[in-house]
Amino acid sequence: MENEYLRADGISKSFSSKTVLSNVSFTAKRGEFISLLGPSGCGKTTLLRIISGLETADSGKIFFNGSDYTNVPASKRNFGIVFQSYALFPNMTVTENITYGLKSREKNKKAKQNIADEMLNITGLYAEKDKYPFQLSGGQQQRVALARALALKPSILLLDEPLSALDAKVREKLRREIRSIHDRMNITTVMVTHDQEEAITVSDRIAVMNGGIIEQMGTPDELYFRPKTKFIAGFIGMMNFMEINGEKKGIRPEQIKISTSFSAEGENAVITDMEFRGAFIRLFLNMENRKTDTALVVDVSSFDTDMSRLKISSLVKVQIPESAINF
C-alpha cells in the first residue's frame, strides 16, 4: 500500500471530441514528490484536476491509500491544491486566507490561530500576516497559497504550475523551498509543470506527458540517461539525433568533443552559428561528410581559451563518442 499511496488507473478524458487523456496510469509512493511534465496541451493539468476531484474522468479510477476515490467529491478528498493563479481571496488578509478552509466547527479560535502561526512560520510569512494579497510580491503570494493548502493538513499536495508566473530568480529560490517544505512535512506531492529544469531539480520521479499519454515515468537521471523515446530525449535536456553505422543514435551536446587543431582525430565540420550561454558556448555545426536535417549541437566550456577564439565559419574537428543512446 505504501508504494501505491496514490494510484491513477487508466484515466481517459475528452472535451467535446478532443481527447485530452487516453488511458493514463501512474502511482505515487507515500511521501514521494512526483512531477507531471509536458508541453502545453499535453493533458497534465487535466490529470491533476481529475486527481483533485474538480474534474471527473470519462473512464478510469483514482485510488488513494487503497480505497477507490473516483467518485469522492473534491471537498471530501482532503487534497490541498495550489493553482497557477494562486486564487488568493483579495478581500482577506494573509491569515484570513490561510484559515479560510478550517472548519467552522473548530470553534477554538486558539487552535485556528496556532495552525495559522505554524503555517506562517513554515512559509516564512509571519511578518506579512495582516497584509492583503495585492500588497505582497508574486513569490509571497505563492507562499500564501501554499500555506493555505497546507493548513488543512492535506493527505496529498497538488501543485498546478505553481511557479510559472514568477521571475526566474524567485522561481529557483521557491522551488527549493517547496522541496524543503515537502521534506519537512513529508507530504506526498504531485506537481504539474512545463519546465523540465524545475521538474528535474525537485522531483523524486517525473512522468513526462505528451499528447494525452505518459511517455515515460522515472527518476530524473533515468530520464536523462536512458530516455525511451525521441520526445523524452529532446524534452529533457538537448539531444542530437544521427545515424551511426546504420543505427539511429542520440548524443547529448556536452558529450561531443571538439578540437581546433587540424591534426586532431575526428570528422571535419564548419561552425554555422554560435550562442554565448554564460558557462558554456553552444555551437551549431555542419558536418562535412554526414548529411543531417538539423545542425549538430555541441556545448563547449566558455573558459576554454581555445574555444573562446572560435568564430562562425571556423573549421573544427568533431569526435562522436561511442556511448550514444540507441533509438
Binding site: S52, G53, L54, P73, I81, F83, S85, F89, G101
Partner: peptide, 27 residues
C-alpha cells in the same frame, strides 16, 4: 473574478454558500 476561487474552496471542503458570502459577493 478568478475561476479558481471556487475550485480552491471546493478542494478545502468549504460550502459554496460560504464562498458566495465571503468571497464572491464582497468582490
Amino acid at each position: 473574478q478568478d475561476r479558481e476561487y471556487d475550485s480552491v474552496s471546493a478542494s478545502m471542503g468549504v460550502h459554496p454558500v460560504k464562498t458566495l458570502f465571503r468571497v464572491t459577493l464582497p468582490l
